[in-house]
Amino acid sequence: MNTAAAFDRGARRYDLMVGLNPGYHRELARAADALTSRLGREPQALLDLACGSGASTRALVDAAPEGSYVLGLDASPGMLGRARAKNWPQQVRFERATVGELNLDRWTRGSFDGALACYLFRNVPAERRDHAIAEVFELLRPGGWLCCQEYSVAGNPAAQRVWGAVAHGAIIPLGVVIDRNPGLYRYLYRSVVEFDSVTTFADRLAAAGFVDVAHRTASGWQQGVLHTFIARKPEESS
């Protein structure tokens, strides 16, 4: 499936769809706070990876110190168009890029204080996932932080049942009625089912060189289904 094209098609209705998810924006805000609370209170240089239509970017801007530079990257031109159309501080900008296929020479390695990646890595093919994490590691300064938010149900039968019920009872039907784009939402269901377990993804972060790797689950219906991971690039990396 061409995920960028599928998200292009769904861009017009995507904000409405995610807004129907109880706790969606609350959990984005919690992830952004988990990242920015570990950084200084001076303006920061921040990445929003897989920024989509800008919901995670808004959470990051709201949580970051005033004057912080925020660069949103996404593979979908349609989503980027939606993001750019919103009102932003002058230090916020958006570019098209695919994590896992980044041209790191386009940005200075080690120049970002923190990176937020919400619902990114399950959309990266498993065979390129470690490479994608390594790209983010390269872009962060020594001591910089990465915060990832991902749905993960592998190895958790209770979470799998919840995710299956929500996806088939609400997400996919709403994708048919509201967005007329069921293929995207069927893909999103499968991408969660097929994604790493919590332990496997945390191990990927550690294998890439990150330290202080930790994770917590969300509240509400997403408990055990949605997880926030935090990890730090060492001050001195080899």
Rank of each mutant, 00 (worst) to 15 (best):
A5G: 00
D8T: 04
R9K: 15
R13Q: 14
D15H: 08
L16M: 04
L20W: 14
P22L: 01
G23E: 01
L28M: 09
A32H: 13
A32C: 12
A32Q: 10
R38A: 06
R38S: 08
E42D: 12
L47G: 11
G52I: 14
A55H: 14
S56T: 06
S56V: 02
A59V: 09
V61L: 10
A64G: 04
P65K: 10
P65C: 13
V70T: 10
L71T: 07
G72E: 01
G72P: 00
L73N: 04
A75F: 11
M79T: 10
G81L: 08
R82N: 06
A85M: 08
Q90H: 03
Q91H: 12
Q91P: 02
R93P: 00
E95M: 15
L104V: 09
R109D: 01
R109T: 12
S111W: 08
S111C: 07
G114W: 12
A115N: 13
A117H: 14
R122L: 13
V124E: 08
R129I: 05
D130Y: 06
H131K: 10
A132P: 00
E138A: 15
E138Q: 13
P142T: 05
L146A: 09
C147F: 14
Q149M: 15
Q149S: 10
Y151R: 04
Y151S: 01
Y151K: 12
V153L: 03
A158F: 03
A159S: 15
Q160A: 08
V162E: 02
G164A: 12
A167K: 09
A170D: 02
P173W: 07
G175M: 06
V177M: 10
V177L: 15
D179Q: 11
R180A: 08
P182N: 01
G183F: 04
Y185M: 03
R186A: 13
Y189A: 07
V192Q: 02
V192N: 02
E194H: 15
F195V: 09
D196G: 05
A202V: 01
A202E: 05
A206V: 14
A207L: 04
V211W: 01
V211S: 11
A214S: 15
H215Y: 13
G220F: 08
L226Y: 06
E235K: 05
E235H: 13
E236H: 13
S237L: 05
